[in-house]
């Protein structure tokens, strides 16, 4: 297929990803491409390989086969400086994973100082701006243990966006939160999306997917069964397993 010269190159372009754990094959040749400013939502039953796929995209998980380009960098090439590549790929985890021995501000500053090589003053003002952006300007000098789960997750988002990544990966960012704290995190994600951030989100927040996603990918058994705009996936799913999954989710 000829590619026109001005077709924008996707920010994330993963092809034919295979991942096995011993006898268990978790990814069966999955492709995933994400265009600039696109928000792709990944849904599917537990154990279908969503986290594994996401974690391959910054090589926290090493695929057994396939290729991944992020922002033009061949992630799986042995010549690639993976630490340099990862600063373009932000990741937010279900369990926040803030550094408990550091304040919110220090959590955000660490990679600014040590990876981007910013001066203390520069890192400090970038961190302050990022924390203000997620609504935590008043809590910058609190330790994670002094913050609610929702606040911790927003600090984790600030820690990632402060590095100005080209794409943000979210792995069930609200699953560990009490229901009343989910909204604050989703609001920050919505604001990010409106600012034009490219995002890949694994989540069960279907209302958010309907409202904010450009494309929804349905995964089952390590395969991408179906993908399309939210209206299609939620309104008129083609695959029986997609229908069953959405029925089950809607019942909640």
């Amino acid at each position: 297929m000829p590619v026109s010269a001005d077709a924008p190159r996707p920010i994330v372009d993963a092809r034919g990803l295979w991942k096995r754990y011993g006898a268990l094959t978790v990814l069966h040749g999955v492709d995933l491409s994400v265009a600039e400013r696109e928000l792709v939502f990944i849904i599917g039953p537990s154990g279908s390989g969503k986290s594994t796929l996401l974690r391959c995209l910054n090589r926290l998980e090493e695929p057994d086969d396939g290729s991944i380009h992020v922002d033009g960098i061949e992630l799986l090439s042995p010549k690639t400086d993976i630490n340099a590549a990862r600063r373009r790929i932000g990741m937010v985890f279900q369990s926040f994973n803030l550094y408990p021995h550091m304040t919110a501000r220090q959590n955000v500053m660490l990679a600014l100082r040590k990876v981007l090589g910013k001066s203390r003053d520069e890192a400090d003002s970038i961190a302050a701006a990022a924390l203000h952006r997620v609504g935590l300007g008043e809590r910058m000098d609190h330790h994670p243990a002094q913050l609610s789960g929702g606040q911790q997750q927003r600090v984790a988002i600030a820690r990632a966006i402060a590095l100005e990544p080209r794409v943000m990966l979210f792995d069930e960012p609200t699953s560990a939160l009490d229901p009343e704290l989910v909204g604050g995190v989703l609001n920050v994600m919505r604001e990010l999306r409106e600012s034009g951030m490219t995002m890949v989100v694994v989540s069960h927040e279907m209302a958010f997917a309907r409202a904010a996603a450009d494309r929804v990918v349905f995964m089952a058994d390590g395969q991408k069964l179906e993908e399309g705009p939210p209206a299609q996936i939620f309104g008129d799913p083609q695959h029986e397993r997609t229908r069953a999954f959405i029925r089950q989710i809607d019942r909640h």
Binding site: N58, L60, N83, A84, R86, R87, I89, G90, M91, F93, S95, N97, L98, Y99, L110, A111, K114, V115, A156, R159, A160, L163
Partner: peptide, 22 residues
Amino acid sequence: PKGQWEAARSTGLSFLQTLRMV
């Protein structure tokens, strides 16, 4: 927890930086 390693490495910190600072 493993998540501490993963969070630090995902921001581009090297193995040794993660070990030492996190």
